[in-house]
């Protein structure tokens, strides 16, 4: 899952990044509102964590810009404000969830996952099915023909990404953008290896390659 965290306090940003990366998330960071808008319009993110009080542009302005640019990525707002009015204002301005500081990291993670679940499975179920493949979004267990697969973090992310874009082509560039963060430079070889490994674990024909177009999974 790829997250954008827009937070001006470097220390908060630092532990959030460490915590999420440890759990296999891909994290991009922005220290101010303008940077946040730039990254959010440039890349696709699964969920955006947005602080309210930001330099240059505050959280509400960032939300406004994103929503008016038709970016519908779920946004969780973080704020030191915790009045009922603040919560309502945040949600009314287009945030999907609201968490006031200080917060427990585990609760933040659970809320992010809940938001993500809505993106991947509109029924908000904690599992998705794709042919013979079942993915449990909570435990991250993947079964194929009822056999439990042991997937690496990236393989799991790749599988979810492909299922999300089922029946359409995804390029290596899209995969790179979704699975790796802005600062990591990887060779296209890494993606090929991941695809190869996933194919090996599931089924050779599961992911189809199309020269010049990319990869595709079909149902």
């Amino acid at each position: 899952m790829k997250l954008l965290i827009v937070e001006d306090d470097e220390k908060i940003l630092s532990f959030l990044k460490r915590g999420f990366e440890e759990d296999g998330y891909v994290i991009d960071c922005a220290l101010d509102g303008a940077d946040g808008i730039y990254l959010a319009t440039l890349n696709h993110y699964d969920v955006i964590i947005l602080d309210w009080m930001l330099p240059l542009k505050d959280g509400i302005e960032v939300l406004d810009s994103l929503r008016s640019a038709d970016i519908t990525t779920p946004v969780l707002m973080l704020s030191a404000k915790d009045g009922i009015n603040d919560t309502v204002e945040g949600l009314k301005n287009g945030a999907d969830d609201y968490l006031s500081k200080p917060f427990s990291f585990e609760i933040l993670k659970a809320r992010i996952e809940a938001l993500y679940r809505r993106v991947v499975s509109p029924q908000a179920k904690n599992s998705i099915e794709f042919g013979n493949i079942k993915v449990n979004l909570d435990t991250k267990n993947v079964t194929y023909d009822d056999n439990l697969l042991s997937l690496s973090q990236k393989e799991y992310e790749l599988l979810l990404f492909l299922i999300k874009h089922k029946n359409s082509y995804v390029s290596k560039a899209q995969i790179q953008e979704a699975l790796w963060n802005n600062e990591e430079f990887i060779s296209s070889n890494v993606i090929e290896v991941t695809v190869h490994n996933l194919r090996k674990k599931i089924n050779k024909k599961f992911i189809k390659s199309f020269r010049g177009l990319g990869y595709k999974v079909e149902i």
Partner: peptide
């Protein structure tokens, strides 16, 4: 004051939570 108190508390809670994870 609550804003100023919350930021350090957030960091303390987050850091310690990660340590114990």
């Amino acid at each position: 004051i609550s804003h100023e108190l919350r930021t350090p508390l957030t960091i303390i809670e987050g850091e310690l939570e990660l340590c114990l994870k």
